[in-house]
């Protein structure tokens, strides 16, 4: 809006962020390369999403206002067990497709017929995306540091593109929130956030999350939520 400059230098262009809508022409593709949300068509760059346009180096990209979570290898995700066979769990990870968790990557071995004793339907888990196939089905693993079943606390959901806002630069916001609420807080890449601690701490943390979402909405829609 105004041309105020951030005190911390030209981190990104702090002039009025240029908002674009799908289909908008973003200039000649000779000078710039197409980044996220931009496509080069017949030598011109075109916006594919609504959001803020960013130019960094020679890459033009769009910081979208909304995105669906699409899993990528090594993403940390919070999932819910949705079903199982004798040696595979099916996990809802908030993506278009379920992920599978084979017994070999699970938290423990189960005897034949005892898979639901290890992880039951409706259980929540913290896991990592091991691989994503061409057709978007994915495999998750629970082998690794901190990957485990969640048995207490609460899981909240936020839009994945607001994670950056929640975490803050260098993780500052998240650290502050943990200190203020004395909660354990894990923000997974699929937008699910695990809060664990005293009930009052969980409530406080959830209120902060909701404030963040409300703030983001107000900025998106110019004050009318």
């Amino acid at each position: 809006m105004s041309g105020d400059k951030g005190a911390d230098g030209p981190r990104r262009s702090r002039q009025a962020p240029l908002l674009v809508a799908p289909g908008e022409d973003l200039g000649d593709s000779g000078e710039f390369e197409a980044g996220h949300g931009v496509l080069s068509i017949n030598g011109r760059l075109r916006a594919l999403k609504q959001g803020k346009m960013n130019k960094r180096g020679n890459i033009v990209s769009i910081e979208p206002r909304r995105t669906a979570f699409m899993p990528r290898p090594s993403d940390l995700v919070i999932g819910y067990i949705e079903g199982c066979t004798s040696n595979i769990w099916f996990v809802d990870i908030g993506a278009p497709f379920n992920a599978i968790l084979p017994m070999s990557l699970g938290p423990a071995k189960a005897e034949f017929g005892g898979i639901r004793k290890v992880l039951d339907i409706g259980d929540a888990i913290i896991c990592r995306v091991q691989e994503v196939e061409e057709n978007h089905s994915s495999v998750v693993t629970m082998k690794g540091m901190g990957l485990r079943a969640i048995r207490s606390g609460s899981v909240e959901e936020i839009d994945p593109h607001l994670l950056g806002r929640l975490i803050g630069r260098g993780g500052n916001n998240l650290r502050q929130l943990k200190e203020d609420t004395e909660c354990r807080l894990i923000a997974a890449d699929n937008g699910r956030v695990w809060l664990d601690g005293d009930l009052s701490g969980i409530i406080q943390a959830r209120n902060s999350l909701n404030d963040l979402l409300k703030q983001a909405k107000i900025e998106e829609y110019g004050g009318v939520v």
Binding site: A21, P22, G23, G37, L39, I41, R46, L48, K49, Q50, G51, P64, R65, R66, T67, A68, H161
Partner: peptide, 11 residues
């Protein structure tokens, strides 16, 4: 569709 963040070449 644009509001949902679905990539599209034009409105």
């Amino acid at each position: 569709l644009a509001h949902a963040g679905i990539p599209m070449t034009d409105l």
